[in-house]
Simulated scan of single mutants.
Amino acid sequence: MMTPVERLFTVFDETAQLLQEELQCTYLEAVAETGENLFHGDVLQSEVSELNAKRLKKQYRELMLERFQNEEIRKAFQLAVLKGMRKHVQPHHQMTPDAVSLFLAYLVREFTRSHLALKILDPAVGTANLLTAVLNGLRGKQANSYGSDVDDLLVKLAYVNANLQKHPVQLFNQDSLRPLFVEPVDVVVCDLPVGYYPDDDNAARFALKAKEGRSYAHHLFIEQSLRYTKEGGYLFFLIPNMLFSSPQAGQLNEFLKEAAIVQGVLQLPLSMFKNDQAAKSVLILQKKGPNVKKPKHVLLVELPRFSNKSAMQAMMAKIDAWITEEKEC
């Protein structure tokens, strides 16, 4: 018997393949189309033949989307998107691993224990997999969320993904390093796009622009995120491990000393990555403000494999104790 995630994925996959043939589009585009159809309970594409429209409606109707939990919908949609990305790979079409998304959701929840409502921004939202994982992990907190991405197909997938999970996310299809129409937020989550930023004129607006040559996009994303964070707000970045040892690291360190407090650096298991150069960590920052204190000890940990449940539970207990101690001091 299929699990709910497998059942949902099967419907996403079969209906996307049918739409791919009917619409002569990529599988990834067809996933977005079928997701929108499923949300509306109808076939919205006029090009689809009458016979195939009936087939699609039957599958959508029999699925009964309202019976599924948000996390089941997110995971099934993620599997369909991952299948599409394997056929349609571009460097920026990389999804945050699911275990990492869930771990970031846990961190956001624990660091914002005292908040009843949150404003959250993901400035590199992609398909909104990370953002909706965080929203699903908030457990009853009210949330207003925003996402921005330059890729129009990813934004469409994010829109469909958020709709299917009934999250009212405001999405912007734009270069996220240009001005955003977003009020300052309590939390930023971002799997930083790593590489050089091609627009030197726009990079000149940033304190972290390179003194010579091209600027690092991941540095500019950190600065941009801090611009749109409230004083005392938290930022959770997925960073390359070499962030603080790269050629422009000195400039980044100086900037962060002025603008933020480092709350923690949590190194992800090296076994998750193909090689040491691809390895990543979670960087937790807090934007400076009048009532913001430095932690007595920065949270520095090497995370065990996520599959090692007892080791992960022990690590999470350690993180919980650190947060409790820092919040009470």
Rank of each mutant, 00 (worst) to 15 (best):
Met2Gly: 06
Thr3Tyr: 06
Pro4Ile: 11
Val5His: 06
Glu6Ile: 04
Leu8Arg: 04
Thr10Ser: 13
Val11Glu: 04
Thr15Tyr: 02
Leu23Ala: 00
Leu23Ile: 00
Cys25Tyr: 01
Thr26Phe: 00
Tyr27Arg: 00
Leu28Ile: 12
Leu28Tyr: 06
Val31His: 00
Asn37His: 07
Leu38Cys: 03
Phe39Ile: 03
Gly41Lys: 02
Ser49Gln: 02
Asn52Val: 00
Ala53Ser: 15
Lys54Pro: 01
Leu56Thr: 00
Lys58Cys: 03
Gln59Ile: 00
Arg61Phe: 02
Leu63Met: 01
Gln69Phe: 03
Asn70Cys: 08
Glu71Lys: 12
Glu71Trp: 11
Lys75His: 13
Gly84Gln: 06
Gly84Trp: 05
Val89Leu: 14
Gln90Phe: 12
Pro91Ile: 01
His93Val: 00
Thr96Cys: 14
Ala105Gln: 03
Ala105His: 04
Tyr106Phe: 14
Arg109Cys: 08
Phe111Asn: 14
Leu118Arg: 04
Ala128Glu: 10
Gly137Arg: 12
Leu138Phe: 07
Lys141Arg: 15
Asn144His: 14
Ser145Leu: 12
Tyr146Ile: 05
Val150Lys: 15
Leu153Asn: 07
Leu153Gln: 09
Leu154Glu: 03
Leu157Asp: 06
Tyr159Pro: 00
Val160Ser: 01
Asn163Thr: 05
Gln165Asp: 05
His167Met: 05
His167Val: 04
Pro168Arg: 08
Leu171Arg: 08
Phe172Ser: 14
Phe172Arg: 08
Ser176Ala: 15
Leu177Phe: 04
Arg178Thr: 14
Arg178Pro: 02
Pro179Glu: 14
Val182Tyr: 04
Val188Lys: 04
Val189Glu: 08
Leu192Met: 10
Tyr197Cys: 04
Pro198Cys: 13
Asp199Tyr: 10
Arg205Tyr: 01
Phe206Ser: 01
Leu208Asn: 12
Leu208Lys: 13
Lys209Met: 08
Lys211Ala: 09
Lys211Gly: 12
Glu212Val: 09
Arg214Met: 14
Tyr228Thr: 13
Gly232Val: 07
Phe237Ala: 09
Phe237Gly: 07
Pro240Glu: 08
Pro240Asp: 09
Phe244Ile: 13
Phe244Lys: 10
Ser246Gln: 15
Ala249Phe: 06
Gly250Pro: 03
Gln251Gly: 08
Glu254Ser: 11
Phe255Cys: 11
Lys257Gly: 02
Ile261Met: 09
Gln263Ile: 01
Gln267Thr: 11
Leu268Phe: 11
Ala278Ser: 14
Ala279Gly: 11
Val282Tyr: 09
Ile284Met: 12
Ile284Ala: 08
Pro290Leu: 10
Lys293Cys: 06
Lys294Met: 11
Val298Ser: 03
Glu302Gly: 14
Arg305Pro: 12
Lys309Phe: 10
Lys309Gly: 04
Ala311Leu: 15
Gln313Ala: 10
Met316Ser: 09
Ala317Trp: 03
Lys318Gln: 15
Asp320Lys: 12
Trp322Cys: 00
Ile323Gln: 02
Thr324Pro: 00
